[in-house]
């Protein structure tokens, strides 16, 4: 109950900030120039010939002749990306861009592959181009938000996650990612609010539980510090530090013992 109340209060007080960030995101997207079908300089150096060879190498291996259109190359790239083969993935996404320089998902996916390689400027350029070509491409904002988060640009990241959620309110990962930024900024109540939203959308999404677990750990450390500041520097924790309590709880989960909790009984 206490956690929910706290979240509610903090959320209400942060609401204007959220609205402001949201509006910044929307206006930023709207201010982008209209998409132009100009060929973007290709950082991976693919050519029409190399893309044809890639098609022959892959489709030819299964004796299938296929139209080498952008979604085909994106499929090739995704398969390589799934194996964490980022360089071939980037090659395939670049071929998708070559096949259709106005196809936003190709830039978005290549941007994410660059991001995985921590080639941040290239990733950012691709994400920017993706949202320029398709301002309604929610996932591109989510990805760019991740890049901004890694770079510590929390304001821009929050803006992007918020735009992503406006465009696709069912994206549990965007809620999770925004929760991460809130947590990184110490706004745990806002973070928990986003975590709850993510779990409402997809209760089976594992990443959200990991994030919430980290937030609980952070909250545990805050309360441990609160205990020490009130009980005095010399005071011992009732049953060890939060980390030690966690170890005790882990054992208790195996044995069914409630002994860990007994040290916390008190009287005034």
């Amino acid at each position: 109950m206490r956690r929910t109340g706290l979240i509610g209060t903090r959320f209400a007080s942060s609401l204007p900030l959220i609205i402001l960030i949201f509006l910044i995101g929307v206006f930023t997207a709207a201010a982008q120039e209209s998409p132009e079908p100009v060929a973007t300089p290709d950082p991976s150096g693919v050519t029409v010939e190399s893309c044809r060879e890639l098609t022959e190498r892959t489709a030819g291996a299964l004796s299938i002749r296929t139209d080498a259109v952008a979604p085909f190359f994106i499929g090739l790239g995704d398969a390589a990306f799934a194996d964490e083969d980022y360089t071939p993935a980037i090659e395939a996404y670049s071929c998708a861009i070559l096949a259709d320089p106005t196809y936003a998902p190709a830039f978005m996916n290549r941007g994410y592959a660059f991001f995985a390689q921590r080639a941040d400027p290239l990733a950012l350029a691709d994400f920017n181009r993706a949202v320029e070509l398709d301002p309604a491409l929610a996932l591109a904002y989510n990805y760019r938000g991740m890049l901004y988060t890694v770079q510590g640009n929390f304001g821009l990241a929050l803006g992007d996650f918020t735009v992503a959620l406006t465009l696709n309110p069912d994206d549990a990962s965007a809620y999770n990612n925004r929760a991460v930024v809130h947590a990184a900024e110490g706004n745990y109540d806002l973070a928990m609010f986003d975590i709850d939203s993510a779990l409402l959308i997809d209760p089976e999404y594992p990443a959200v539980y990991a994030t919430r677990s980290a937030i609980y750990t952070a909250l545990a450390l805050i309360d441990a510090e609160a205990y020490r500041s009130r009980a005095g520097e010399a005071a011992r924790y009732p049953n060890g530090s939060p980390i030690e309590v966690m170890g005790g709880l882990e054992s208790a989960a195996e044995t069914g013992s409630f002994a860990t909790w007994l040290a916390f009984l008190t009287r005034r």
Binding site: A61, T66, D67, G75, L76, A79
Partner: peptide, 11 residues
Amino acid sequence: SYYMGEGLGYY
């Protein structure tokens, strides 16, 4: 096209 590409990539 996407799934054909993906399948060939996995192959």
